[in-house]
């Protein structure tokens, strides 16, 4: 594995009375797309929220780019260079598409060339540019959420289930968008339930089960090992198209 930009070491997270993460350890290599996989309720979303500081880790260590961020506040974590797309997408529906992107660019006006590149990835956004984001369809909202995350160069993107609830044609264009992001050298941690998307996109895979990392390695290894898939992800052969 190349040099790790983000590492989690023995991270535990409690939410109310529930002990969700029970010692999660893994690393993310710079420039790679890491898939975070696991069954429903395994702790994938909790992992992302804990990294972002939206839920506090009760013990363990999270290091980003050589700095410990375990106890940092969410805004500081974001400012250190992590962009987060939650499962709910977090679109500001009362704001226009433009205003959503303007807010994501903390350091001032969006670089025009970058914006053109982003809108090239998600052409639909251009059409709705000055309309309230609440009018967008689910897929378009997801595009906006990702566009927002990359409005300025960030060092790590955390994306939670970008293909959830999307029509197959939308999933395809989402996969294309992530391929373009990979090509641009972005470092991404992607939570995904769609194993097809995961297998196409992932460089590495981290599988969480019951709040612990149950497997990690190259994505190709997981793709080849149907036994492992069945055991950890509950996948059966017919999920493979």
């Amino acid at each position: 594995m190349a040099e790790a930009i983000l590492t989690l070491e023995g991270v535990h997270t409690h939410i109310g009375p529930y002990h969700i993460l029970q010692g999660v350890s893994f690393g993310i290599a710079r420039g790679e797309l890491t898939m975070l996989l696991g069954r429903n309720g395994a702790g994938k979303t909790t992992t992302l929220r804990t990294i972002m500081g939206l839920w506090q880790a009760s013990s363990g260590r999270i290091t980003f780019d050589g700095r410990e961020i375990t106890a940092s506040a969410t805004p500081d974590i974001a400012r250190s260079g992590i962009a987060y797309v939650p499962e709910s997408m977090g679109i500001f529906t009362g704001l226009t598409v433009r205003e959503n992107i303007v807010l994501a660019a903390r350091s001032g006006p969006v670089d025009p060339a970058r914006l053109d590149w982003i809108l090239g990835l998600f052409p639909a956004l251009r059409r709705f540019w000055d309309l309230p984001a609440g009018n967008l369809s689910g897929g378009q909202k997801q595009m906006l959420a990702i566009a927002r995350a990359i409005a300025e160069p960030r060092r790590l993107l955390l994306v939670d289930e970008p293909t959830k609830g999307l029509a197959p044609v939308m999933i395809r264009s989402m996969i294309e968008a992530f391929q373009a992001l990979k090509a641009a050298g972005e470092t991404i941690l992607l939570v995904e339930q769609n194993f097809h998307a995961a297998s196409v996109l992932g460089d590495r895979a981290v599988v969480i089960d019951d709040g612990r990392v149950a497997h990690q390695g190259p994505m190709s290894e997981l793709v080849a090992d149907t036994d492992l898939q069945q055991r950890l992800l509950g996948l059966s052969m017919d999920t493979h198209q």
């Binding site: 506040a73 969410t74 805004p75 974001a78 977090g90 500001f92 807010l103 903390r106 927002r148």
Partner: peptide, 13 residues
Amino acid sequence: VENAEMVESLGYR
């Protein structure tokens, strides 16, 4: 007003 958590996640206090 809509989503305070997301505003924080974008890096604003």
